[in-house]
Simulated scan of single mutants.
Amino acid sequence: MDTNKPAKPAQGLLRYLESRKNLAGCALGLVGLALTFAGLAGAYWPFVIAGLYGAGALIAPPERPAAPGFADAVAQLDQLRDDFATLHGYLGEVDLPPAAAGKLTELNGLIAVLLEPGWVTDALAVDPEAVHSLSRAIRQDIPESVDTYNRTRWWTRLNPGTESPERHLERQLGLLFDEADAIATALREVESRRQQTHTRYLEDRNGAP
């Protein structure tokens, strides 16, 4: 048993002694003490000091817990890049039909470009929705699509004649590619607007019609 841990009441007392309310109360209590030494508090000096301390404790701003610090967008993209490498290793071990494998190659290539360190990820970092979409694709949608295909394919062999799992996989990968392509298009449009804005700025600066 650890006997070095302070009791909870002692912890609460220590927290109060360090609190804003106690510090503000002590500050006004010192004012009351100064009034007492100056002879202005009279016989009621204990009540003056106690009253000023209480007033200081009441007007002090309440304590608030520190806001939690979460990873910034750059750190999130670094982690996402590591997760994408893990996903790539998993996909290298699965056997996919040629059409789906081709769509997956296109999808992975696009995601790799979007996660390439440099100005692309700098632009991506300021769009939390885009980061969320890529995170969902890498950590959930792509592995789920491939794993579901593998499991469904096994059951289809036992029960032929049902809808082809290959077709579902191709459609899923196609939809995921469209989502990633929409992110790339949005980033390209942002850069295009930035270029146009700079052109207008130079034209206005030089008095161009």
Rank of each mutant, 00 (worst) to 15 (best):
G42K: 14
Y149D: 00
R171D: 01
L14D: 12
R167Y: 07
P98K: 13
R64H: 12
K8Y: 11
E163K: 05
L134S: 02
G69N: 08
L58T: 10
G118S: 09
L30K: 02
R188Y: 04
D141E: 11
E18K: 15
E203D: 14
G161F: 01
Y53T: 14
N22D: 01
R139T: 04
A85R: 13
R20D: 02
N206Y: 13
P61Y: 02
R153H: 05
A7Q: 10
G32F: 00
F177A: 10
A7K: 15
A100T: 02
L124S: 10
V74W: 05
T121A: 05
L17H: 01
R171Q: 09
H132S: 12
E18N: 15
W155A: 13
L40E: 03
R157S: 11
G109S: 06
L17E: 01
A75R: 11
R167F: 05
A71Y: 02
L173Q: 04
A101E: 11
H88P: 00
I49Q: 06
D78M: 07
G29M: 14
Q196G: 08
A7R: 14
H198D: 09
Q76D: 02
R81I: 00
N150C: 03
L124F: 06
L87F: 08
G42W: 09
S164K: 09
G12C: 03
D2P: 06
R15L: 09
H198A: 15
L91C: 14
